[in-house]
Every structure is written in C-alpha cells, then in structure tokens.
Amino acid sequence: MPHLAVADLTATYPGTDKPVLRDVSLQVEKGEIVSLIGPSGSGKSTLLRVLVGLLPPNSGSVRIDGEAVDYTSRRSLKNARDRLAIVFQQYNLFQNMTAMGNVTIAPIRIKGWRRPEVEADAARLLAKVGLADKHASYPDQLSGGQQQRVAIARALALKPEILLLDEVTSALDPELVGEVLDTIRVLAADGMTMLIVSHEMGFVREVSSRVVMMDQGSIVETGPPAQVFDAPETLRAREFVSRILRH
C-alpha cells in the first residue's frame, strides 16, 4: 500500500474558474523521495497546499496509508495534518518566538507533550540542522538559510510521517542553498517519506527516487530521474528539460 496516494485530484482557487490542478494522480511509497518539477504556475506548490488542507479540492481523493482524507471534516483534516508536515518557501517562522520556541510551541501547546522531552528533542533536531548554538535567536537575527533550517526542525518536531518541502531553497541567497540541501540529504538518509517541490535540478536528480513533471495543472511525465531528465517521453517534458538544461 502506498504511503501517500493521490487520485484524480482537481482544485480551483476561490474566485477563479480555471482549475490549477486537473486530475492529478500520484503515489509515494514509504521511504520514497518524490520530486515535483515543472515550470512555475504548473501546480506543484498548489498540490502541496491541497494536501495540507490550505486549499480545498474540488474532487478526487487523498489517502494516507490507505485512509482517505476528508477535507471537509475537521477531525479528518486534523488527523491528516498530524501525519503530514510542510516547510514553506518563505520559512514562515513565528516572528515572536526564538528558534527553540518555534520548534517547541506546537508539540507542547497543541500536542500536549511534556516540555522536558520536547525541549530535548528540539535541541537534538536543531543540532541536526546545524543550529545547536542558535536556540535563543529570533527569526530576524537569523539568515534565510538558518531560518529555513529552523523551519525544517519545526516540521520534524511534530514527528510527521510524510514531509512536504515547498521550494525550500527558492528564497535563499545562492551561497545559503547548500546548507539547506545538506539538511535534506540527512533526512533522506534517515528514510523519511518526502514529497519535494524544487528548482534545484542537480539536487532533485541526486536525492529523488522518482521525479514527477507537471505542466498546467497536470502530470506530464513520471519516472526515475535518469529517465525523466535524459530520455523524457512526452514532447512537453522534452521542452521543459531542454529549457532547464540550457540554463
């Protein structure tokens, strides 16, 4: 049974009538790392937003471990959000909390876990993302790359089963991209199931078990990185690959 199964998902932004996702179907096995690539506006980030319940789907289904998510039900959505975690392009750290506060707030206040254990775990996670010395720093005292690593630690502190990464390096200065990618490599080695939206093609090729290419809200090609990048089957995929490889 796939860890995450998306079937015929269609979604539209409120106030518009052109769907941003059309009949998207996708499966992610346990421990697999699937990367979503494609031109901007192709619906990659929207897919992640739908999965975490920030945009209600029009039709289609999402299953986690075979269990269907009902986005209209508060309880079902809560359950899904317990199992999924997302890291955003703009990090979205809570500006009023330290790095430590950002990582521990939800486990303590929302999950009701015990503070000493949560803090010990948070310290371990911050060390893992290379920020052992930044516990007491506020977001505006951290670089973009450091903030993004705090955001990753924050997502992991909730012990998700599946991690969604939404262009986590796009807002970073080029010299800060490497440190965030290194962090993701560590997670990949741990066997975390991940769905990644990224423009870092070299990185996508290196870590992904499978690559999914989207265009205009639909999936146009799926396969192992080597196949999608080197021998794309569809015309649209070939165009996209030749465009990104020229850069």
């Binding site: 920030l54 959000r81 975690a85 979205n92 929302i110 909730l158």
Partner: peptide
C-alpha cells in the same frame, strides 16, 4: 496570512 496558514497546518 502565512502566519495563520503555518499555524493551521500545525493543527493550531
């Protein structure tokens, strides 16, 4: 709004 969204996704 992203602060609300982020919190919502964490089940706040």
């Amino acid at each position: 709004q992203t602060q609300w969204d982020t919190a919502a996704v964490m089940n706040f």
